[in-house]
Design a protein around this nucleic acid. Sequence first.
DNA 1: TAACTATGAATGAAGG
DNA 2: CCTTCATTCATAGTTA
Lengths: 204, 204
Amino acid sequence: MGDHGRDRHSSSTLHRSTADRTETEPVRTRWTPKPEQILILESIFNSGMVNPPKEETVRIRKLLEKFGAVGDANVFYWFQNRRSRSRRRQRQLQASLMVDPRAAPGVTQQAGSGVLPHEPPTSSSSSSSTSSNNSSFPCSSSASSSPSSYDFVMDDGSDDLFSMISSQTPFMCSSDVPRSHCQPGTITVFIDGVPSEVPMGPID
Amino acid sequence: MGDHGRDRHSSSTLHRSTADRTETEPVRTRWTPKPEQILILESIFNSGMVNPPKEETVRIRKLLEKFGAVGDANVFYWFQNRRSRSRRRQRQLQASLMVDPRAAPGVTQQAGSGVLPHEPPTSSSSSSSTSSNNSSFPCSSSASSSPSSYDFVMDDGSDDLFSMISSQTPFMCSSDVPRSHCQPGTITVFIDGVPSEVPMGPID
DNA sequence: TAACTATGAATGAAGG
DNA sequence: CCTTCATTCATAGTTA
């Protein structure tokens, strides 16, 4: 069982493959988000917007497109998976703790499905309260920080727009926020000096 | 009948999986349509019956049951999801074409952008909605002259297709092109040489 | 080289 | 009808 043969077409936009053959192979490679894109997505997610509406999704996509080809579907999937994964992680962790206080995440992988629960660090101080004191995102750049708005400064004009990212951030500073009811603010992302606002109104 | 007389979940038939976890665990396995079942479903869908009534749903279920456990709800959900997905795809495609200037007829293209699963705003979203584009596609294609039975002739089929049934079965594809409403006839599915008729009455 | 992990994409099932 | 959750498949990227 488990033999599905559904149409696996979709996706799109991807970087150049090793060698683009003129063959009829669409090379349906899946979208590989760039580090900058991941940063943006994570920041938005951690800002409380865990489920952006369509309008916001489109806007976010436009934002991400500045760093690489990406479609609305990719953004949509990203948020969906993010939410799902976060919840699942929490659930499994909780379940494990309930059953056995020292239930190690080690599992015996069985042939067939490789869905083994893997609980990485993070997710500790999760106060599921209406109060949101989420000050995640150590994006301590020289940019001024406005209340209720996150500033994101990127320098892609240079050769290495990655400098800012690898400057201090290990890779991804994501503290899974279960559901923060952030106040209506605005996520401001500065790209190449151009600020892009992503108003985060009613999250869901 | 105020409410749809359709029972929401009545999939009484479901196979058991490797239930060696907990004895009392129903394992709640979701229905995994077999390739043959998918073929039948797609055929019916592509034949124009995109929203079969309950009676037809039951009949289709009976048909599918020959290849594996399946409930009425599964069939119902399948059609519902299929319809939704098709519409979404179509909408997205149209939107993409409007935005994407490279609608080159040439194939072997890495697609434009990730098609999103949710409806794009298409024209600012404000105007009254539900402006269903009825034009659609020409309801012609290759159809048998038999007014009593309908043949499934799908194009595409470029994707990997499973090894059909043990008999000869018309190919199918994932192309979603629901004919608005072809002539009311009968959908005949040849299974193992045995024709099963599914009269398509009120299509939708 | 293969095996594993992380994650994007697809879809069944439900809720509204 | 539409959106959303949960489960699963497939694959890019990493590791032994």
